[in-house]
Computed example of a mutant assay.
Amino acid sequence: MLDVNVRWLAVLYFKNGIDRYWRRVAPNALSEEEKTSLRAGLITNFNEPVNQIATQIAVLIAKVARLDCPRQWPELIPVLLESVKGQDGLQQHRALLTFYHVTKTLASKRLAQDKRLFQDLASGIYSFACSLWSHHTDCFLQQICARDEPAALSSLERTLLSLKVLRKLTVHGFQEPQQNMEVMGFLNAVFERLKEFLECCEYLLLYPESLL
């Protein structure tokens, strides 16, 4: 693997070059063949070990997605969904981090056509996102009860990322979320989970030595 400083500079230069060279009308714009190759390389693997670099890569992928997804980059979301289901912990986390940044970026687009595309995306992946959040929440609660603090912290981070994805999908992905059974089911589940988290906090306050 390349030196960490080289990877850091590479992702920053790449990210900062999107606005200058990615659009077709830009001076010295990249060719479609070059962009296709770069897009494929960005989602080849999700195994960056340094958190700060991984975050910048996720932001970079989201910037490209804002311009190209789904029309020129239809494989992005399926690859991310498949990767977050993987067994490798690092790959799963990095893919989930990227999934959040992509969702956040696509949700911020304001043209009517882009909003419709995001609504189509939301309806297609909402159930999966709910299952993902529920799974990581279950893992966190089980690991806390088992007094496995490192694993619990890892699951809690994944739970938070999943919840952030669902927030964007819920707020921006449905014209009338209160009329959608999946959305209302998720919101009801949030309150049920909140009770479990409060009980967990109460337990930790009463028995802080349980995590020692």
Rank of each mutant, 00 (worst) to 15 (best):
residue 125 I to K: 02
residue 195 K to S: 12
residue 98 T to E: 00
residue 17 G to D: 10
residue 54 A to V: 08
residue 129 A to S: 12
residue 109 K to W: 01
residue 103 T to G: 04
residue 122 A to G: 05
residue 191 F to G: 06
residue 87 Q to P: 01
residue 15 K to E: 08
residue 109 K to F: 06
residue 32 E to S: 10
residue 153 L to M: 14
residue 145 C to L: 11
residue 151 A to M: 05
residue 178 Q to R: 14
residue 169 L to W: 07
residue 160 L to Q: 12
residue 161 L to G: 00
residue 152 A to P: 02
residue 112 A to I: 14
residue 169 L to C: 05
residue 169 L to H: 07
residue 208 P to R: 13
residue 28 N to P: 00
residue 31 S to N: 07
residue 76 L to R: 05
residue 24 R to N: 08
residue 29 A to M: 00
residue 77 I to D: 00
residue 109 K to G: 04
residue 168 K to F: 13
residue 132 L to Q: 07
residue 190 V to E: 14
residue 65 A to G: 04
residue 176 E to G: 01
residue 191 F to D: 10
residue 21 Y to Q: 03
residue 92 Q to L: 03
residue 113 Q to C: 00
residue 188 N to S: 15
residue 5 N to T: 08
residue 136 H to S: 04
residue 212 L to C: 10
residue 71 R to H: 10
residue 161 L to C: 03
residue 189 A to S: 15
residue 122 A to F: 07
residue 73 W to D: 03
residue 65 A to E: 02
residue 187 L to P: 03
residue 152 A to L: 02
residue 91 Q to A: 13
residue 63 K to Q: 13
residue 6 V to K: 06
residue 192 E to M: 11
residue 153 L to Q: 08
residue 25 V to Q: 12
residue 10 A to D: 04
residue 140 F to Y: 09
residue 189 A to L: 11
residue 113 Q to G: 01
residue 30 L to I: 07
residue 150 P to T: 07
residue 7 R to N: 01
residue 205 L to F: 15
residue 107 A to K: 02
residue 174 F to Q: 10
residue 197 F to A: 13
residue 185 G to P: 07
residue 194 L to N: 14
residue 206 L to A: 15
residue 51 N to T: 07
residue 122 A to D: 03
residue 44 T to A: 06
residue 8 W to I: 00
residue 166 L to S: 05
residue 41 G to I: 07
residue 36 T to A: 08
residue 14 F to R: 06
residue 32 E to R: 08
residue 45 N to Y: 11
residue 177 P to H: 10
residue 173 G to T: 12
residue 28 N to Q: 13
residue 180 N to T: 11
residue 208 P to N: 14
residue 187 L to A: 12
residue 100 Y to D: 11
residue 4 V to G: 00
residue 4 V to N: 04
residue 92 Q to F: 01
residue 7 R to F: 00
residue 133 W to C: 08
residue 64 V to K: 03
residue 47 N to Q: 12
residue 111 L to K: 14
residue 55 T to I: 11
residue 75 E to V: 11
residue 205 L to A: 14
residue 84 V to D: 02
residue 114 D to R: 12
residue 86 G to T: 15
residue 157 E to W: 01
residue 3 D to L: 06
residue 38 L to I: 15
residue 192 E to A: 14
residue 86 G to F: 02
residue 156 L to K: 02
residue 105 T to S: 12
residue 4 V to Q: 08
residue 168 K to D: 14
residue 126 Y to P: 00
residue 30 L to M: 15
residue 102 V to M: 03
residue 135 H to D: 04
residue 15 K to M: 07
residue 41 G to M: 07
residue 161 L to S: 05
residue 37 S to Q: 10
residue 5 N to I: 03
residue 64 V to E: 04
residue 64 V to H: 01
residue 138 D to V: 04
residue 170 T to Y: 04
residue 167 R to W: 13
residue 13 Y to F: 09
residue 52 Q to T: 09
residue 42 L to R: 05
residue 25 V to N: 03
residue 211 L to N: 12
residue 68 D to W: 03
residue 36 T to H: 13
residue 46 F to G: 00
residue 78 P to V: 05
residue 197 F to L: 14
residue 96 L to N: 08
residue 53 I to V: 15
residue 198 L to S: 09
residue 155 S to F: 00
residue 109 K to C: 12
residue 145 C to A: 12
residue 42 L to K: 08
residue 173 G to A: 08
residue 98 T to M: 05
residue 164 K to C: 05
residue 211 L to T: 14
